[in-house]
Every structure is written in structure tokens, then in C-alpha cells.
């Protein structure tokens, strides 16, 4: 399967945690740099003390070898540093907590499932406007309030460049604020081990400029159902038992909503680029690509049928 997996985004450098793309990640990155550099400095100090203890001149050794030095270096010094850090950490925690933020944030409910994500866009009153899966579209420069829930086991939502992570726990609704300040694609990942193919439970956030976002939003409204042999096969082969395509009889709820699947950047929850080839490959044998996922392999399709179904699905923009 390696051949079918192409890089989604090159790099890993700079590390996403240290490369923030919005205010909720940015302040944590500042903290991270201070902690990394400060921690490094303290390590150097301790190693220097250890070096003096082993190799230093007798005068310094004597000063290091008493209870006064232990109190000063092992207690007083960390106490001062940690008091400062604690105050900073508490202030930051409070300012970043979504419980304290009200107002005009865009609201999206995201539900973690074994091993993909349901995405429900909501209006200001919390009514559902639009369903999607595995991809979140947001406008830049505006905070987005995520309501995080779980359908089965515990998952954790994490898009490192936009903010910290937050667990999705059955029976609870956790809130998380994210914001992107530049258009782009931001990679996310389930961070809490959720069994089976947890490693391949990815996600992307697509941030648009306000104008683009409005265009994207408008493109979601007409439900383009299409027709033809692909749809017929889709309906007759059991796909519709799990998937919904609005405007057709397919109304299954177990798997991701496919109404706009052709416009998604990725397949299989953030792990494959989306094109007719990967689509066909996924349908034919998703178990080889993401072992353990809940979609059965469709070996029964002939090559021709497979092409018809996948060609149909990629047209659902």
C-alpha cells in the first residue's frame, strides 16, 4: 500500500507545535520556547554543577558540598523559577479556556468515531446547518468554537498549529477554541489511543479567506446528487446502508456523509489524497489501507463497476 500513499504536506519542519498559525497556538508556542530554552539552560547549570563536583577546584567543591548549597540550588532556585512559571501558566490557561469565551465565535460540533470524525456545522443558536466528515472548513481570522463529543470510545482532537488538544469523551461535551490567521490546510490527528487503526485517524482543517469561505459555504447549499450507473451501483451494493448522499435514497448514518465527498482533500480520514484512483482503491480494499476500519472491502466489484462508482463519487463536489 506504500505506493498509494503520497505525502499530504511535505516537511515536519518547523515542527507544527513550534509553528503556530493562530492566536490560540501562538501563546502556547511562546511558552514552549521559553520552557525548552529555559529547561536547556537549567540542564546546563546542573551539568556544570555535576562537573564541578567531579572535576572542579577544591574551593568550589567545598562550597558545593554542604547543606546550604543543597537548599540554595535544589530548593530556593527552583522555587523562584517555578513560582514565575506557575503564575504565567495559570494566566495563560485561564485566557485560553473555551469556558470563558462567549460571543460571536463560529460553532461546529465534531464527534469522534472509531476511526473518523463527524462534522456538524451549527448556526448561532446551535442548530445544525450542514453535515460533513473528516474535514473542517473555517474562515481565517475568526475564532471557531468546537464542541467535541464521542460516539463510542474516547478520542482526542488535535490540530497542533491551531491550538492544543482536547479529549472527546462519551457523555460529555468539551469545548475548544481554534483560529487560523492564514489560509491553508492544517493537519490534525486523533491523539488519544482509540484501538485498532488509531494511528490512521487523521483530519484536516481548511482555512479560507472570508470571501473564499463564503463561496465554499454557498457551494454546500445545492445538493448535487448526480445520477447514472455509479449511483445505481452505490445504491444496489449496500453502500447506502452506511452512507448518506443527500438528494438520493442513500441515507445510512453509520459512516461518513458522502454528499460532498468529491470535494474533500483526503480519503480514509486524512490519510490518502482524494482522486479517482485512490477512491477506487479505497472502495475495493479499504482493509488493506487502514486495517480494522469499519468499511468492508468490496472485492465483488469488477474493475468496470469500481470505476463507475468511484467516478461517480468524485463528482460529488
Amino acid at each position: 500500500m506504500t505506493s498509494r500513499t503520497e505525502p499530504l504536506a511535505a516537511g515536519g519542519w518547523p515542527p507544527p507545535v513550534l509553528d503556530p498559525a493562530g492566536p490560540f497556538a501562538e501563546s502556547v508556542t511562546t511558552l514552549a520556547w521559553v520552557l525548552l530554552l529555559g529547561g536547556g539552560a537549567v540542564l546546563v547549570i546542573v551539568l556544570a554543577m555535576l562537573g564541578i563536583a567531579l572535576f572542579g577546584p577544591p574551593r568550589l567543591k567545598t562550597r558545593l558540598g554542604g547543606e546550604r548549597a543543597i537548599w540554595a540550588l535544589g530548593f530556593a532556585f527552583p522555587a523562584v523559577v517555578l513560582t514565575g512559571l506557575l503564575i504565567w501558566g495559570l494566566t495563560l490557561t485561564s485566557s485560553l479556556s473555551a469556558t470563558r469565551v462567549a460571543g460571536d465565535a463560529m460553532r461546529v460540533k465534531i464527534i469522534g468515531e472509531m476511526w473518523w470524525w463527524r462534522v456538524h456545522y451549527q448556526d448561532a443558536d446551535g442548530r445544525e446547518m450542514l453535515r460533513d466528515a473528516n474535514e473542517l472548513h473555517i474562515p481565517v481570522g475568526r475564532p471557531v468554537l468546537l464542541e467535541l463529543e464521542a460516539a463510542d470510545v474516547i478520542h482526542s482532537f488535535w490540530v497542533p498549529r491551531l491550538g492544543g488538544k482536547m479529549d472527546m469523551i462519551p457523555g460529555r461535551t468539551n469545548r475548544l477554541l481554534i483560529q487560523a490567521d492564514a489560509p491553508g490546510i492544517y493537519k490534525g490527528q486523533c491523539a488519544e489511543y482509540c484501538g485498532g487503526p488509531h494511528a490512521l485517524m487523521g483530519f484536516i482543517v481548511v482555512a479560507h479567506s472570508p470571501a473564499d469561505f463564503a463561496r465554499w459555504r454557498a457551494s454546500r447549499l445545492p445538493e448535487s446528487a448526480g445520477a447514472g450507473r455509479g449511483l445505481a451501483l452505490f445504491l444496489s451494493s449496500g453502500c447506502a446502508a452506511c452512507h448518506t448522499i443527500r438528494g438520493t435514497p442513500a441515507n445510512g448514518l453509520a459512516g461518513p456523509d458522502l454528499t460532498h465527498v468529491g470535494s474533500r482533500r483526503t480519503l480514509g480520514a486524512g490519510i490518502l489524497p482524494n482522486n479517482p484512483g485512490t477512491m477506487a482503491g479505497w472502495i475495493a480494499d479499504s482493509q488493506a489501507i487502514k486495517p480494522g476500519n469499519r468499511m468492508p472491502a468490496y472485492h465483488q466489484f469488477s474493475g468496470d463497476e469500481l470505476r463507475a462508482v468511484s467516478d461517480y463519487l468524485v463528482t460529488l463536489k
Partner: peptide, 24 residues
Amino acid sequence: VIFVTGGLTGVMVAMVPFDWQAHD
């Protein structure tokens, strides 16, 4: 040497906002 290094990263993850990134 090793324990001090681990202790310092421990202080980092004791900071709640940093832990939101580092956790898991």
C-alpha cells in the same frame, strides 16, 4: 544526567497550556 533531563521536561508538561500540546 538522565533523570534531571526527564525532570525538566516534567516541569514543562506540568504547565497546563504546554501539556495541551505535548499530552499523548
